[in-house]
Amino acid sequence: MKTLSLRNLQKTYFDPYAGSQVTAVHDVSLDVEQGEFVSVVGPSGCGKTTILNMVAGFIPYSGGEILLDGAAVKGPGPDRGVVFQSFALFPWKTVLENVGFGPKMRGVPKADRDRIAREYLELAGLSHAADRYPNELSGGMQQRVGVVRALANNPAVLLMDEPFASVDAQTRMTLQEELTRIWQERKPTVIFITHDVAEAVFLANRVVVLSKGRVLDQIKVDLPRPRVWDHLMQDETFKRLSAQVLQMVRSA
């Protein structure tokens, strides 16, 4: 059962400084199934963030198509939730208001959306922070809010753009474990962009390696869940898969 398909996706744009057309994404085809967790890795400049921005609808694509449940994607919409590297929480809204923003846009009454938001905050262990403002939280807590804010909107796909790249290493591991736990509970469809190979393998069912605007290769990851760093760190399969992906990325 396919949720999201990219077919021969292509992106060229005009660079006024160079005075010429530049191709960021050459030809990418990818199918993501319902409830699948796909990591996309690649060196910087491989076009991974561009692809995510096109799927999210933030920038138009120049060729090919993006289909979500069979319908072409046009512009940003609540069916695709996005988690940003810079968190992108609204500084002028409390944590509760941030999480309740999506339901509010759907016209859900205040009492109901507060209930929804609290439920999701509990999922992320953030109930105590509901009335605080984002700048009063640590980076790790802010990104937890970012994740549940996107989830609270019940998107068909969750798009994550290097969401844990700007938190410290300790917190990152905790967040990764929490994300796998939440994924197991809710089974959302996820596309996770990262340049961290271990992170990609740790989280995903499938890792897609990108290079110069093309899909280089894909690897299935069938490690058992729940996934915990303490176990996987020593796990032979995990090590082998990580090494394999790393080699692909470096040869890319």
């Binding site: 005009f14 006024p16 400084y17 005075g19 010429s20």
Partner: peptide, 14 residues
């Protein structure tokens, strides 16, 4: 390349 893009490019570079 259209003339509009060319002009824009000229303006940006200028």
């Amino acid at each position: 390349m259209s003339i509009v893009l060319k002009l824009w490019s000229l303006y940006v570079r200028g």
